[in-house]
């Protein structure tokens, strides 16, 4: 079984730089280890959050629970099944219109909706495509040659570009808001800005890594042998910032937000 990690360079190109084959193996191992660590940190963080939420009661007027990780899911299920006041929407309507399409945000501020949907949509699409590319590469590596990773990567090249720019536009709007809209600027705290700064770095490094690989504008004229380390840098900070950091940061709203909408049946 070949252990070369397909880092975006074609296999032929990779083999012509003999020493890069070694670094690609290291890159693969490094990415796998770091991904495992990132996911482990994420799971530890979620465990701590579930324990924290689990200190609440299972219902109105009941005594606090003992911090069991099952308290929150039980309470959530009970609340979702009960009669709620407010919209009392069904779960599908809530998930699609409020969680996914963020209808409640659109009602309040179309501008903020555009910004957030761009960031959310871009982030989710890129995440899904990254996972898809990784899965295809792994399948190919273990010897199941259903889809050629290079071909698949080429297929996703355009949507990757599109969603990357959508995400970038969303981030630019967010930065402009935080800097130039007085209300947003004055209410910004580290809790908010860390997320934005981190996301900006990830997006920019993603463009740069891809640009070096393809020799495009975002490559900034750098040599193609810098593509693997550039990719590695992007992948590592993405793993740690966009996965591991979730439970410990404002990112938590990505999980708690939809859960809140479901618990309250679409809200008031």
């Amino acid at each position: 079984m070949s252990m070369e990690y397909y880092s975006g360079l074609s296999t032929e190109v990779a083999n012509s730089f003999g020493m890069l084959t070694e670094s690609m193996r290291i890159t693969f191992a490094a990415v796998m280890i770091m991904a495992t660590i990132a996911i482990a940190i994420f799971m530890i963080g979620m465990y701590i959050n579930l324990k924290k939420w689990g200190l609440g009661a299972e219902g109105y007027g009941l005594k606090p629970s003992n911090g069991s990780i099952f308290t929150f899911p039980k309470t959530l299920a009970y609340q979702m099944s009960g009669k709620g006041h407010g919209h009392g929407q069904n779960i599908f309507s809530t998930l699609i219109f409020d969680a996914l399409l963020q209808r409640r945000a659109l009602r309040r501020s179309p501008g903020r909706w555009v910004m957030h949907l761009a960031i959310f949509g871009g982030w989710i699409a890129l995440c899904i495509m990254s996972i898809a590319m990784f899965v295809v590469e792994i399948i190919h590596m273990v010897g199941i040659h259903v889809l050629d990773p290079a071909v698949f990567r080429e297929m996703l090249s355009f949507p990757n570009d599109v969603f990357s720019y959508i995400l970038l536009i969303g981030i630019i709007i967010a930065i402009v808001r935080r800097l130039f809209v007085a209300k947003a600027r004055e209410s910004t705290i580290a809790f908010d800005s860390v997320l934005l700064v981190g996301l900006t770095i990830i997006v920019v490094t993603g463009f740069v890594a891809d640009g070096i690989r393809n020799g495009t504008l975002w490559g900034l004229g750098m040599q193609s042998d810098l593509a693997p380390p550039a990719s590695l840098f992007h992948v590592v900070i993405s793993l740690f910032f966009c996965i591991a950091y979730i439970p410990f940061s404002k990112y938590m709203h990505m999980i708690a937000g939809p859960l809140t909408l479901m618990a309250n049946k679409g809200g008031e």
Partner: peptide, 24 residues
Amino acid sequence: INTNNLTAVQLMELDACVRCGECV
């Protein structure tokens, strides 16, 4: 502090706030 009178869902809601400021 303690968690008296707060349900598990309410404790989760505290982490759901996106700090949009609309409530303000």
